[in-house]
């Protein structure tokens, strides 16, 4: 079952990559890459179980963190104005 899940995750990752290549605009690509990242986290976790290496999970945690920060960072770079909605004015409020 675990190897079947790995195959399914790999296929999903390929689908996400396809969407990243097809675009058509920047947002579709960022969305696809973000999803590719979360599937990588799952893939690493499942691989840890398949190979009997539970320490892979630490890598998964780290990857989840980096993936989230990367998505926000890319949007920050392409959007200099306030990213998130809400009542706050500037940073740190």
């Amino acid at each position: 079952m675990i190897s079947a899940v790995m195959v399914a995750l790999l296929v999903t990752m390929v689908l996400a990559l396809l969407r990243a290549f097809l675009g058509p605009d920047r947002y579709n690509r960022i969305l696809a890459i973000n999803m590719f990242g979360t599937k990588t986290v799952l893939f690493v976790a499942v691989a840890g179980f398949l190979f009997g290496r539970p320490d892979f999970l630490d890598i998964g945690i780290l990857y989840a963190l980096v993936n989230f920060v990367a998505t926000i960072a890319v949007l920050r770079l392409s959007h200099y104005e306030e990213l998130v909605s809400g009542r706050s004015g500037g940073a740190g409020e």
């Binding site: 899940v5 995750l9 999903t12 599937k39």
Partner: peptide, 16 residues
């Protein structure tokens, strides 16, 4: 695991 894999695949298909 099977249901999760199915949902993952469906999401990937939906993305396209």
């Amino acid at each position: 695991l099977g249901a999760g894999a199915l949902f993952a695949l469906s999401g990937g298909a939906g993305l396209l």
